[in-house]
Amino acid sequence: MIRFDKANVTYKGGVSAMKDLDLEIGDGEFVVIVGLSGAGKSTLIRAINGLVPLTSGGLNVNGHDVPNLNAKGRRELRSEVGMIFQGFNLVDRTTVLNNVLMGRLHQVPLWRTLIGKYPEEDIQIAAKALDRVEILDRAYVRATNLSGGQRQRVGIARALAQEPKIVLADEPVASLDPPTSHVVMKYLQQISRDLGITTIVNLHFLDLATAYADRIIGLRDGELVFDGPGSDADEQTFRDIYGRSLTADDTMAKQAAL
């Protein structure tokens, strides 16, 4: 379970990206966070695995008291939380398999990771993760030789190889075309359902959010302005989140039609 308790994040220079946030996310939920850029979506996601420290308030993630973790505790927390990035963040010059094996770094003895001799079980876990996103046949291809959609699937496989309890996805489809976006969203949804992984996804396309989310969280200027099931989110909700009526820019289907 993830619980924010009066949590605040203020960046250097005074920008406040999270204001007195109270929020609880249960195990196995598939949550989509929507909001304009700068609303604090990335901050919320990065706070959960400690990449962004809270300025004040409390945050508990699966029993980890995030603000008070030392370096070792933070690594432990992160090993339980998979992360998927907008720009994929793969090491392009090494193989797909090596990228996915990074998900095993925390579990494998240090000396083995340094010389690159991963145990057979861990290679199996990585291979299964690749198989789950149906890209196992490219295991020994360099990441740079894949298409965007394939690279994001490798990103998902890397997160899965951690055998995580939580997966965080920061704008996972923002660099992809609409059909590929749906493929990636379906993989995320399927993984969450099959493996019971709590999944938190940042999106800025509203139709994608309502199509896949069990629960939508709306942020505006660092504040929670909506929290409810996807079916409850209507035109008025999005006006609250975006501070204006919807335009073609806000939905992927309409934008693709342009």
Binding site: R75, V91, D92, M102, L105, L110, L114, Q162
Partner: peptide
């Protein structure tokens, strides 16, 4: 810096970050 962020996010130690986030990028 993206791959380095990714190695941090999987819970890698400083040496592991160097080995898998930095060295593959600079080796050639």
């Amino acid at each position: 810096s993206g791959p380095i962020e990714a190695t941090d996010a999987v819970g890698a130690s400083r040496l592991q970050r160097l080995r898998w986030g930095v060295i593959p990028q600079v080796a050639p």
